[in-house]
Design a protein around this nucleic acid. Structure first.
Length: 584
RNA sequence: CGGGGCGUAGCACAGCCUGGUAGUGCGCUCGGUUUGGGACCGAGAGGUCGGAGGUUCGAAUCCUCUCGCCCCGACCA
């Protein structure tokens, strides 16, 4: 490809709208342009990168017997109603009507459509397992598109689905996918962690996310460098040092006045108060059940720890939890936030004919001589023994893990909590869709059983963006060879000098003949401009055809290492070929 | 959806408070010089000031409504 003919609209300055690095560089290097919020056009450079990523994905999917499909993005309402997700997906689904008034949607994912094919065509266990996939555009009406290509309303996804007779088959299919994902992300040059995750609205038993640590990410994950433990913060746990409590001096909690004490911090500093780890933090929440009913709940944590709301929701089996409003708190507890506690509230609620759940974090188990709110404004209780004084309905893990805490698995390591970007997610779906949609096969005993399914997704542009987040410098993008838009750029420093021009053209042909994707910078620009642009778009290797041509010598520049070496003309093709193909 | 910010030339921005008929840098076109890390000189082209309505002799500027985009939060296979 000749640069003079190729569309690479580079920008000298950072666009005002871009915040994260990948967004700025995708724009500046001429890879993408925005059409509307969360909707981007992929220009030739980006599309080349994405096609290379897709090629890697296809190779790895095919290697585990995946079969590529292409399903419609435009779906009728009926299929989605069968699975119940026409309502579950809510406002996140783009919906439209055809000229007859029939309702349609744009696909957010394709469990339903693949399942509908499976139920019509798969009859016998002998046809299983099947692994079906596609690389296709998905639509989600995100409430807040952001960060360039990282959170968008239209994007390309590889989604795969496995169909097995039984759980053991699913376990095998899941493992195949997991291994394929590891190879895919590794080949794309990403440093990633596979983490345990909550399976959320997808349903099913197990779910793992593939996360790339970067500040541009929106999730938080905890990782242990020494043993490799990794989990989404919504699942992560850690080991805590036990706290040695004095046996309670009091036979019952003792109330004491604490004027103007509202926070854990206030109570630490209050004479006669307590250190944070000796306090019980009492948070009033309202949980929404699947039936849409609201139920009040008190979450109890150690004073020095934070609640993770998803953990609370998961523990309660609630679809949603929210902090209670001040009026609700007053009504329920008889005091304002700042003087709340779990002592006696159960009985009080019962007496008032109300149900109130108390959920406590494991770290509070067996603690004695604690201090907590008295449910009376400006008063607290000391000498609280949890087992004796608080009627806990459920003990569970509620607390948010923090950096520096000890790894729950290996003991030796400490956890690091960091922002991360989800590039892939694999689920064991089980029979959720096959049951609701009637996708059954006959097993070896002639008995009709629902197909056991798995679902596996990868975001293509997220891989591209994550690669940039991970591999860039002040001059621009640094593509790893496997997903670079070109293997090498040949930079002719001055096209007006015939000798340089001829040498460049010749090299261009030879490199192409060697099987490489070559970009020839034949523009009538000054050398400095060409170098800057080449650095910006991040081609892994640059061959500079310049004044040393009189010595039959060119320069070979390594974009990642920022090192330049003189190479004889007759050796350069082999050198580049070796370097570029080694990285593919 | 809640909070904040911004829409002026292809890009980045000034002008708005205090109303008087639109400007700077980069980019673009033409001519010349230059030619290894985003050159220089000269001459040009390019703007319904997001849109609608209002106030006014006069609106980019003031008022009302509206559309769009960005950021924070909530949300999110």
């Amino acid at each position: 490809m000749r640069w003079s003919q190729f569309f690479i609209p580079t920008l000298r300055e950072d666009p005002a709208d871009a915040e994260v690095v990948s967004h700025k560089l995708l724009l500046r290097a001429g890879l993408i342009r925005q059409l509307a919020a969360g909707i981007y056009s992929y220009l030739p450079l980006a599309w080349r990168v994405m096609r290379r990523i897709e090629k890697i994905i296809r190779e790895e999917m095919d290697a585990i017997n995946g079969q590529e499909f292409l399903l419609p993005a435009l779906n009728p309402k009926e299929v989605w109603e069968e699975s119940g997700r026409w309502t579950v997906m809510g406002d996140n689904m783009f919906r439209l009507k055809d000229r007859r008034g029939a309702e349609l949607c744009l696909g957010m994912t394709h469990e339903e459509i693949f399942t509908s094919i499976a139920r019509h065509e798969l009859r016998s266990y002998k046809q299983l397992p099947q692994v079906w996939y596609q690389i296709q555009t998905k639509f989600r009406d995100e409430q807040r598109p952001k960060s360039g290509v990282l959170r968008v309303r239209q994007f390309i996804m590889k989604d795969a689905y496995s169909f097995d007779v039984d759980q053991a088959g699913l376990d095998k299919s899941f493992e195949d996918q997991r291994a394929a994902y590891v190879r895919i992300f590794t080949r794309c040059g990403l440093k990633f962690s596979m983490v345990e995750a909550s399976s959320g609205a997808m349903g099913g038993s197990a779910s793992n996310e593939f996360m790339v640590k970067t500040d541009a990410g929106e999730d938080l994950i905890a990782t242990c460098e020494s043993c490799g433990y990794a989990a989404n913060l919504e699942k992560a746990t850690s080991k805590l040092d036990a706290i040695a409590d004095e046996p309670s001096a009091l036979s019952a909690p003792e109330e004491f006045p604490t004027p103007n004490v509202r926070t854990i911090e206030d109570l630490i500093n209050f004479p006669g108060g307590a250190v944070a780890s000796r306090q019980i933090k009492s948070l009033v929440y309202v949980a929404k059940t699947e039936a849409g009913e609201e139920q009040p709940v008190i979450a109890l944590l150690r004073g020095d720890q934070q609640l993770h709301e998803t953990k609370l929701a998961d523990a309660l089996g609630a679809t949603e939890v929210r902090p209670a409003h001040p009026e609700e708190i007053r009504d329920l507890m008889g005091a304002a936030a700042g003087s709340l506690g779990g002592v006696g509230v159960k009985q009080k609620a019962k007496a008032a004919g109300r149900d109130l759940r108390i959920v406590a974090d494991n770290a509070l188990r067996g603690r004695t001589d604690m201090t907590t709110g008295a449910n009376k404004d400006d008063h607290h209780l000391r000498g609280v023994d949890i087992g004796r004084d608080i009627e806990v309905d459920q003990w569970t893990d509620l607390r948010m893990v923090a950096s520096g805490e000890r790894c729950p698995v290996c003991e030796a390591g400490t956890l690091d909590v960091a922002k991360a970007l989800e590039v892939g997610h694999i689920f064991k779906l089980g029979t959720k869709y096959s049951v609701s949609m009637g996708a059954n096969v006959l097993d070896q005993n002639g008995k009709e059983v629902p197909i056991v399914m798995g679902s596996y997704g990868i975001g293509v542009e997220r891989i591209m963006a994550a690669a940039i987040e991970l591999h860039h410098d002040a001059d621009g993008i640094v593509w790893t060879p496997a997903i670079a838009p070109f293997d090498v750029v040949v930079t002719v420093t001055n096209m007006k000098q015939q000798e340089l021009k001829d040498a460049g053209e010749k090299l261009y042909r030879e490199l192409q003949a060697a099987g490489l994707d070559v970009l020839l910078d034949d523009r009538d620009e000054r050398a400095g401009v060409k170098f800057k642009d080449a650095d910006l778009i991040g081609i892994p290797f640059r061959v500079t055809v310049g004044k040393k041509i009189t010595d039959s010598t060119v320069e070979l520049f390594d974009r990642a290492k920022k090192e330049s070496a003189d190479v004889k003309l007759d050796e350069v093709v082999a050198r580049v070929q070796q370097l570029a193909l080694a990285g593919r």
